[in-house]
Every structure is written in C-alpha cells, then in structure tokens.
C-alpha cells in the first residue's frame, strides 16, 4: 500500500494552486500582507503556520467526537493559542531579531482564518492522518503565496534576497547599480503587498478561466 493514496495526494496538491487558501478561499490575508517585506520573515511565517495548522488539525481531529458543538470555537481557540505560544517562545529563544520583526503577527496566527477555517471545514469531519495532510497542504499553499510576495518585495524594494545583495551594492555602485538601477522603496511599504496579491490573482485567474468570478 502506498503511503499516500490518490485522494491524499490531492489533499496536499489542491491548495497549492486551484484551491489556494489566499487567492481563492480568501483566508489568512492579514499576516500574508503585513510581514512580507522580507523573504526571511515570509519563510519563517510560513513554517510557523505550517506547524500550527498541521498539529492543530491533528489535535482537533482526535478530539472531534468529544467536543460539544456549542463551545467548539472556544476549544479551537485554546488549542491554537497553546500551539502559537510554543511557536512564539521558540522564536523568541532562537531568533530574537526576527521575532521583533514579526511582532504581533505571530500572535495573530491565532486568528488567522486559515486555521479556524480548516478546523471547521475539515478536521471536525475527518480522521487525524487526513487532517494532518490537509493542514500541511493548505499551509503550503499559504506559504507559497507568502514566499512569492516576499521574494518580489524584497528583490525590488531593497535589492536583496534573504539579506544577500543579489543586485550589487547600491552605495559602491556595483552590479546593476553601475548602470543606474535604483531600488523601488515603495515596494517595502504596505500598500504594495495588496497590489502584488492582486497581480498574483490576475495571473492565476487568466491561466485558469474556471476561477473567474461573476463580479
């Protein structure tokens, strides 16, 4: 028996493209926009969400038969909050500078709609293994968009990737800067994140006409 059946594979692959949590389901936008000025922060955020959503989905799925449906939101919030506190403490211990950059947005993973959305839509009705795969798939789709935005914003905004000066040194005039290239500081400001997401949606929907909305 294969480790992943065909259905299981689609659980992971679907959210990467045609059922992407950010561009199609419109979940988890807040963090996607606020912390993507640097590629590194985007990657860390994507990994944190992957951890929280994967583990959270398993926990909720294991408890799905004993949670009374009336108080399930509070139960879900407590599970997420506990996982997020773990992430936050680990970040503060091993990557203090980065945790300053992410500031309150680590805490806001708690109210990231992807997490509650997947709990409600999937983990409450499916077994732990499939819920785990669903969690990984959705957070991978989320992470993919985050990394795309982070890549372009950092590259065009400060001319670096993960802190490396890939386009040359703006002060010593090497690389592209030698021929008069300038960084577009505007890309670092928050409104550009929205516009970059808008452009990603544009590209995605013109490639797959089935996703086009009525209005």
């Amino acid at each position: 028996m294969a480790l992943l059946s065909k259905k299981d594979t689609s659980l992971i692959l679907d959210p990467l493209a045609d059922n992407n949590p950010i561009t199609i389901q419109v979940l988890g936008i807040c963090s996607a926009l606020a912390i993507t000025a640097e590629l590194k922060a985007s990657i860390v955020m994507a990994l944190s969400v992957m951890f929280v959503l994967g583990m959270g989905n398993v926990v909720i799925s294991l408890m799905r038969n004993i949670i009374p449906s009336k108080i399930r939101i509070i139960v879900q919030l407590v599970v997420v909050a506990a996982l997020v506190i773990m992430v936050d403490q680990v970040l503060k211990a091993f990557a203090y500078e980065l945790s300053k950059t992410l500031s309150v947005f680590v805490g806001l993973i708690i109210t990231n709609c992807i997490i509650m959305g997947r709990f409600e839509a999937f983990a409450l009705a499916n077994g732990p293994w499939r819920s785990f795969l669903d969690g990984i798939g959705n957070s991978a789709g989320y992470g993919l968009i985050l990394i795309i935005i982070g890549f372009f914003r950092e590259l065009l905004g400060s001319g670096t990737l993960l802190g490396f000066k890939v386009l040359g040194d703006p002060i010593e005039k090497t690389g592209l800067y030698a021929i008069g290239y300038e960084n577009n500081g505007f890309m670092l400001l928050s409104p550009m994140a929205l516009i970059v997401v808008g452009l990603i949606i544009w590209v995605q929907r013109s490639r797959n006409k089935a996703l086009i909305e009525e209005n």
């Binding site: 949606i201 996703l211 086009i212 209005n215």
Partner: peptide, 9 residues
C-alpha cells in the same frame, strides 16, 4: 480575471 477579489485587492 480581475473581477471580484482581484480588483478589490
């Protein structure tokens, strides 16, 4: 392709 979500962003 921009209708709905895209243009809102």
């Amino acid at each position: 392709p921009l209708r709905g979500l895209g243009i809102t962003f």
